[in-house]
């Protein structure tokens, strides 16, 4: 039962590492950004999980309900999602500029051109 209760934390760790792997191992800049988004999404999962209370409902005051989930992590993660979107958007913007200037979005080809 305890292991099952932790399943979301395991998911967090696995998704985090998948994203991290893509960032490090993929030479394509777009794939790196996809990895970065997955990496950040894992952290969203961590925060949402910690706010959930077993059997709790939305924190709206009503009769007959006494267990509420913690809304604060969700609010925090809304902000973090906005940050993540801005980062991805800016990253994609930079990739577009790189493509314009270098004609490639493969890391080694760009390095090759800079070496000349």
């Amino acid at each position: 039962m305890k292991l099952l209760g932790l399943v979301y934390y395991w998911a967090f760790a696995i998704v985090l590492m998948i994203g991290f792997y893509a960032v490090i191992a993929k030479p394509n800049l777009i794939k790196k950004l996809i990895g970065l988004s997955i990496f950040q999404a894992a952290v969203f999962l961590l925060y949402i999980t910690m706010g959930k209370v077993d059997g709790g409902t939305a924190p709206i005051f009503q009769d007959g309900v006494s267990v509420y989930s913690n809304p604060l992590p969700q609010v925090l993660i809304l902000t973090a999602i906005v940050v993540g979107i801005s980062t991805t958007a800016l990253g994609l913007g930079i990739v577009v500029r790189i493509k314009e200037e270098y004609g490639s979005i493969e890391e080694h080809e760009i390095q090759e051109q800079d070496r000349q």
């Binding site: 800049l29 970065l36 952290v43 760009i110 800079d114």
Partner: peptide, 25 residues
């Protein structure tokens, strides 16, 4: 050449900030 440099900075900076966020979480 600032563009690939800044892309690298963006990737590493975001990883740094996300690690910080995990710690705070």
């Amino acid at each position: 050449r600032a563009l690939p440099a800044v892309f690298k900075y963006l990737i590493m900076g975001t990883i740094g900030a996300t690690f910080y966020l995990i710690g705070v979480g």
